[in-house]
Design a protein around this nucleic acid. Structure first.
Lengths: 239, 239
DNA sequence: CTGCGTGTGTCACTCGGTGTCAAACATGAC
DNA sequence: GTCATGTTTGACACCGAGTGACACACGCAG
């Protein structure tokens, strides 16, 4: 879609940099920014509340279902007021969906990091594999969230909205890589195909993985198989 | 996705058969059911209120923006109470999104109607072309709605949710046609690719079409072009 | 006329979400 | 130590979406 993701988070909060809550996407890479190693005490406090809120919410949602839990409940259980909850999250859905907020950015940077000459199918496969690898590596943390999202209409809707944003980013990056018109048909189409594969794999993984911690299937194997189907189309670039 | 679309419309209303409001999808085909030509007076009254509500809402939304219009406003302008509004539509979003409720069913039946031996790319192209043809034929009615949806986060989310449902339907139909396991990777992947193309085309069409009634580009030409990209992947079925 | 079913309006209520204000707190300057 | 500043928080009031309950009006069979 061409709709700008629309900063649904109008209040990333005064003092906070950007994303709170342990993002699910990249392994948080430790090396990139050796400078700026001083998370203000205030920032760390904020982070603390955010994670407390997130974990409390996820636990309650998993236990009683998303709709059956009120924001007041979550806030009180975490020891803050409802008003404060909304200073950390723009909406009730946000607590869950922000958990995978980094995925889009991760995909894009991964795509940007691929060698210039690489075939689109290979580059996109690697990009989309990053968050899936994170899922495969920590199923005990990611599986419940993914299942919650996929099983709750309201959350699914938000998730898909996010994906639409990712798609634009990927399409832009792809157009840049290949020197194509970003307004052409191929870039968004290719990005959409990659995300369709991503979604399909996520879905199948969340179904097949045993309810016990260790997932049953490897998401990386699934995504590779899916890209085996997509590749003929992805690599026949014409603009 | 494997999430059942979840009957967001818990109240199709006591006396109503199924869908109210003039669906956008198929040309409403006149021939199919020659019997049962007696829409109870009550039913026609209901239909009347539904269309009044829909048109009033669309007009207000287009004029002031979706979020800026309250349900009370719509209801009052249409001459009913807020409570009655919710007896016709499950949510505020529903008024807009139900406008294209038929699309999914149209696609599926169109796909089912294609000759058995046809290549998946051709069959899916025809399926997805049905609603797009409707858009191309009546841009003055469809363009504003499409633009409204694509430009409003809340509506976009709902739309994407609908699409997830369509995808499952198409995947099921496709699996049946090709004798594949519906739980395999190919069916949902192929359906997702077709819908990605659909979405991309819808998006580009809504941007390019002059704000005047007559659209600038032909959605059917666009979708054919998009399927030119997808075909190599769609027709390399392996299961 | 009476009973019945359906559709509607009114009222009251829950819950998500926001604006406002005042108190609590940390920080830095003097 | 104290005053001034800025940020975070809770409390309160408020809006809008959505629901449940009840009572009333209509069209229709007896």
């Amino acid at each position: 879609m061409s709709t700008p993701p629309a900063p649904r988070t109008p209040a990333p909060a005064p003092g906070a940099p950007a994303s709170d809550a342990p993002a699910l996407g990249a392994p948080a890479s430790d090396a990139p920014a050796p400078a700026l190693r001083a998370p203000t005490l205030a920032q760390r406090k904020r982070q603390l509340v955010a994670t407390e809120l997130t974990e409390t919410a996820l636990q309650l949602f998993a236990h009683k279902g998303f709709e059956a839990v009120t924001v007041d409940e979550v806030a009180t259980a975490a020891g803050v007021s409802k008003r404060t909850f909304f200073r950390y999250f723009a909406s009730k859905e946000d607590v869950v969906v922000q958990f995978l907020a980094g995925m889009g950015a991760d995909m894009r940077t991964a795509l940007a990091a691929r060698p210039a000459g690489e075939r689109p199918s290979a580059a996109l496969l690697h990009a989309v594999s990053v968050p899936l690898a994170a899922c495969g590596d920590h199923p005990e943390r990611t599986l419940p969230v993914v299942r919650l999202i996929l099983g709750t209409p309201a959350l699914l809707a938000r998730f898909l909205e996010h994906e639409a944003g990712w798609r634009e980013e990927l399409a832009g990056e792809l157009a840049g890589r290949l020197g194509l018109d970003p307004a052409g048909l191929y870039p968004p189409l290719a990005a959409g195909m990659a995300l369709t594969a991503f979604e399909t794999v996520l879905c199948r993984w969340s179904e097949d993985a045993g309810s016990g911690g260790g997932g049953g299937v490897d998401p990386l194997a699934l995504i590779a198989e899916a890209f085996g189907v997509l590749a003929p189309a992805l690599d026949a670039v014409r603009g």
